[in-house]
Simulated assay, not measured.
Amino acid sequence: MKNMNWMANYTGESDFILVGIFSQSNHPALLCVVIFVVFLMALTGNAVLILLIHFDAHLHTPMYFFISQLSLMDVMYISITVPKMLIDQIMGISNISAPECGMQMFLYVTLAGSECFLLATMAYDRYMAICHPLHYPVLMNHRLCLLLASGCWFLGSVDGFMLTPITMTFPFCRSREIHHFFCEVPAVMKLSCSDTSLYETVMYLCCVLMLLIPVTVISSSYYFILLTIHRMNLAEGQKKAFATCSSHMTVVILFYGAAVYTYMLPTSYHTSEKDMIVSVFYTILTPGLNPLIYSLRNKNVMGALKKMLNVGPVFQETIK
């Protein structure tokens, strides 16, 4: 019951102070503009990708369904950190209340965990499509896709419900300055004056499990995919398979690399400056890069985009 009421327990106490990345910059105004532009690009790119996949019948396949789920996660991912960071910089505010901090932490951990499992699901989907093409439409039906996506969201929320209440119920009797631009679990844990070694060990094991299962699925899927590609006699088939998988592998390397650094490397490897740089990379840059990775290198998505852009002129000609 204590863990479930952490918001009530902290209401009325002193707020946390987010030091943020702007205090580390020699040109905070320029950095603010750059982050705002990247934020708009990420929102626009992911929103356009979601709309294309929803409205174009040629993109109503399991692969694009999972890409739309990834885009949805990225939109939410970047929206829980960047808007507050930019508004605080413009307004000259750096405070965040404990309930707001806890909610931000919960949403962030949930989305990160969900994306972790979704990337594994996408690798499994590519395995089924390339290694079992004849049975693919039957095995990866719409019901199974919905079930897999729901499972990713559920497992991510379990991670959020586990880590957030425990983190926020530790007593914070040191400085309440969070040397980060949002309430990330390791950054908040540094403020606790109690012994958190057991919790940090449990959290480490939890993160290892959260990464080990998806990485095993991804590694196994791509092992069999590479074997299948090697056996292909058609160069066109090999090229198409590599193109399909390379986009996903790029996203996997970007996301898991940052996750391993943040949650699995010993504290001796961490500094506040390094942690913020890595966090900027996977909370701001990666959501902006994902739409480019999945659209510019994908003929079907580019074809759907051209078709959508041509709707306006065609409609005008029809009226005339």
Rank of each mutant, 00 (worst) to 15 (best):
L309S: 07
H230K: 04
N3A: 00
M168D: 01
V202N: 07
I17H: 14
K190F: 02
G303N: 11
I67K: 07
P99S: 04
T11K: 13
C207G: 11
K2A: 14
F106T: 02
M203D: 06
I130S: 09
G312C: 08
E200I: 10
C152D: 02
L146K: 06
Y294E: 00
P62I: 03
E273W: 14
A98S: 09
T201M: 06
N9I: 06
A241Y: 01
M302C: 11
Y64V: 02
G102Y: 02
V38L: 05
L155E: 00
I319T: 10
Q69V: 10
N290E: 14
C152Y: 03
P165C: 01
D275L: 06
S97M: 02
V314H: 13
Y261P: 05
W6M: 00
S268I: 08
S194Q: 15
I178V: 15
F36G: 04
P291C: 06
M308T: 13
C193S: 15
T318R: 14
I293E: 12
K306S: 03
V109Q: 12
P99W: 09
L51G: 00
G288Y: 07
R126T: 03
S219T: 09
R126D: 10
P287V: 11
V260E: 08
I96V: 12
L147F: 10
E100T: 05
P137L: 03
I50M: 11
F154L: 15
A149E: 10
S94K: 15
L43K: 01
V38K: 01
E13F: 06
F106N: 07
S279F: 08
S220P: 03
A258E: 02
A57C: 09
V48H: 01
A29S: 15
Q238M: 09
M140C: 05
A112D: 08
V33N: 03
F154H: 10
N26Q: 07
S175W: 00
A98W: 10
H132L: 06
E184N: 15
A149L: 10
P62D: 02
Q69F: 05
N3F: 15
V48Y: 00
I21N: 11
A120F: 07
Y294I: 02
P171S: 05
G151A: 12
V75E: 01
L31A: 06
M264P: 05
L86D: 04
C206W: 15
Q238I: 05
A42C: 07
E177L: 07
V251Q: 12
E317T: 08
D195L: 09
R143Y: 03
Q104L: 05
N3W: 09
I284D: 13
H54E: 08
R143W: 12
I50W: 08
I78L: 13
V215Q: 07
D125C: 12
E317G: 06
V34L: 04
N3K: 08
F242Y: 04
K274V: 08
I35R: 07
L227C: 13
G92Q: 04
P171T: 10
Y222S: 13
L43D: 07
V260N: 12
L134N: 15
P313V: 04
V158W: 12
C131T: 00
P171F: 00
L146H: 14
T61A: 14
K299D: 12
L118D: 05
